[in-house]
Simulated scan of single mutants.
Amino acid sequence: MTSRTYAVTGMACGHCAESVTEELERVAGVTAVTVDVDSGTVVVTSDRYLETADVRAAVEEAGYELTTRET
Protein backbone atom coordinates (compact mmCIF):
# COMPACT_ATOMS: atom_id res chain seq x y z
CA MET A 1 0.00 0.00 0.00
CA THR A 2 1.16 3.50 -0.78
CA SER A 3 -0.30 6.86 0.21
CA ARG A 4 0.30 10.15 -1.54
CA THR A 5 -0.93 13.62 -0.64
CA TYR A 6 -2.00 16.01 -3.38
CA ALA A 7 -2.94 19.70 -3.26
CA VAL A 8 -6.25 20.46 -4.96
CA THR A 9 -7.67 23.93 -5.60
CA GLY A 10 -11.29 24.93 -5.86
CA MET A 11 -12.79 22.73 -3.14
CA ALA A 12 -15.00 24.61 -0.68
CA CYS A 13 -17.52 22.23 0.87
CA GLY A 14 -18.54 18.67 1.63
CA HIS A 15 -20.09 18.28 -1.81
CA CYS A 16 -16.72 19.15 -3.33
CA ALA A 17 -15.07 16.45 -1.21
CA GLU A 18 -17.68 13.90 -2.28
CA SER A 19 -17.18 14.68 -5.96
CA VAL A 20 -13.40 14.38 -5.75
CA THR A 21 -13.65 11.18 -3.69
CA GLU A 22 -16.09 9.61 -6.14
CA GLU A 23 -13.88 10.29 -9.16
CA LEU A 24 -10.67 9.17 -7.45
CA GLU A 25 -12.25 5.92 -6.26
CA ARG A 26 -12.81 5.04 -9.94
CA VAL A 27 -9.06 5.02 -10.62
CA ALA A 28 -7.76 1.45 -10.78
CA GLY A 29 -5.78 0.54 -7.68
CA VAL A 30 -7.21 3.22 -5.38
CA THR A 31 -8.23 1.72 -2.04
CA ALA A 32 -9.01 4.86 0.00
CA VAL A 33 -9.42 8.60 -0.43
CA THR A 34 -9.35 11.21 2.33
CA VAL A 35 -10.22 14.80 1.42
CA ASP A 36 -9.48 17.76 3.70
CA VAL A 37 -11.37 20.71 2.23
CA ASP A 38 -9.95 23.19 4.76
CA SER A 39 -6.33 22.47 3.83
CA GLY A 40 -7.07 21.75 0.16
CA THR A 41 -5.44 18.33 0.28
CA VAL A 42 -6.36 14.85 -0.81
CA VAL A 43 -4.66 11.69 0.47
CA VAL A 44 -4.93 8.80 -1.98
CA THR A 45 -4.09 5.29 -0.82
CA SER A 46 -3.54 2.61 -3.43
CA ASP A 47 -2.36 -0.94 -3.78
CA ARG A 48 0.02 0.04 -6.58
CA TYR A 49 1.88 3.02 -8.00
CA LEU A 50 -0.46 5.63 -9.49
CA GLU A 51 0.53 7.93 -12.30
CA THR A 52 0.04 11.57 -11.33
CA ALA A 53 -1.66 12.08 -14.69
CA ASP A 54 -4.37 9.57 -13.72
CA VAL A 55 -4.97 11.30 -10.40
CA ARG A 56 -5.01 14.70 -12.13
CA ALA A 57 -7.54 13.48 -14.71
CA ALA A 58 -9.88 12.21 -11.97
CA VAL A 59 -9.65 15.47 -10.02
CA GLU A 60 -10.30 17.47 -13.19
CA GLU A 61 -13.27 15.26 -14.04
CA ALA A 62 -14.73 16.27 -10.66
CA GLY A 63 -14.24 19.91 -11.66
CA TYR A 64 -11.16 20.83 -9.62
CA GLU A 65 -7.46 21.33 -10.22
CA LEU A 66 -4.63 19.19 -8.90
CA THR A 67 -1.84 21.68 -8.28
CA THR A 68 0.94 19.57 -6.76
CA ARG A 69 1.88 16.16 -5.50
CA GLU A 70 3.16 16.81 -1.98
CA THR A 71 4.35 13.36 -0.91
Rank of each mutant, 00 (worst) to 15 (best):
E51K: 15
S19I: 00
R26P: 01
D38K: 02
Y49D: 15
C13L: 08
A57Y: 10
M11F: 12
V37S: 01
T68I: 09
R69T: 14
S46P: 03
T31V: 07
S46M: 04
R56G: 08
H15I: 09
G40L: 03
E25A: 04
A12P: 02
A57E: 12
V44A: 09
T45Q: 12
V43K: 03
H15R: 10
G10D: 06
M11V: 07
G40I: 05
A53D: 15
D47L: 04
E23V: 03
T31E: 09
A53L: 14
A17Q: 04
V30P: 00
E65L: 14
E65G: 11
V44L: 11
E60T: 09
T68R: 15
R48N: 11
V8K: 04
T31I: 03
V43A: 08
A62D: 10
E25F: 04
T45N: 06
V20C: 07
A12D: 10
R48Q: 14
A53R: 14
R26C: 07
E65M: 13
A7T: 08
V43L: 05
T5I: 08
V43H: 01
V42F: 09
T67H: 01
T67Q: 02
E60D: 09
R26K: 14
V37F: 01
E51C: 14
T45R: 12
T67M: 04
A12G: 09
G63F: 09
D38F: 00
T41K: 10
V59F: 11
V42R: 00
T2F: 11
R48W: 06
C16E: 05
T71L: 13
S39M: 02
M11N: 08
V8C: 03
E51D: 15
A62T: 09
E60N: 06
E61V: 08
V42P: 00
A62W: 06
R4L: 13
M11W: 10
A28C: 06
R48D: 13
C16T: 06
M11A: 06
S46C: 10
V55G: 08
M1I: 11
S46V: 05
S39A: 12
T71M: 11
A53N: 14
V35G: 01
S46G: 08
G10H: 08
E61P: 01
T71H: 13
A58K: 00
A12Q: 12
V27C: 10
T68P: 06
V20G: 01
Y49M: 15
T71P: 11
L66T: 11
V27F: 13
A57R: 07
M1C: 11
S19Y: 02
V43S: 04
V44H: 03
A62F: 13
S39Y: 01
V20R: 00
A17Y: 05
T41W: 07
V42S: 00
Y49Q: 15
T21G: 02
R48P: 05
E70N: 12
E23M: 07
G29N: 07
V30F: 03
V27A: 05
V59M: 08
Y64V: 02
C13G: 05
T71A: 14
G40M: 04
T45Y: 03
A32R: 04
M11D: 07
G14N: 03
C16W: 05
T68A: 15
T31N: 03
T31M: 04
T68V: 14
E51W: 15
V43I: 09
S39V: 06
T41S: 07
G29H: 08
T71S: 14
A32F: 00
A7M: 07
H15Y: 10
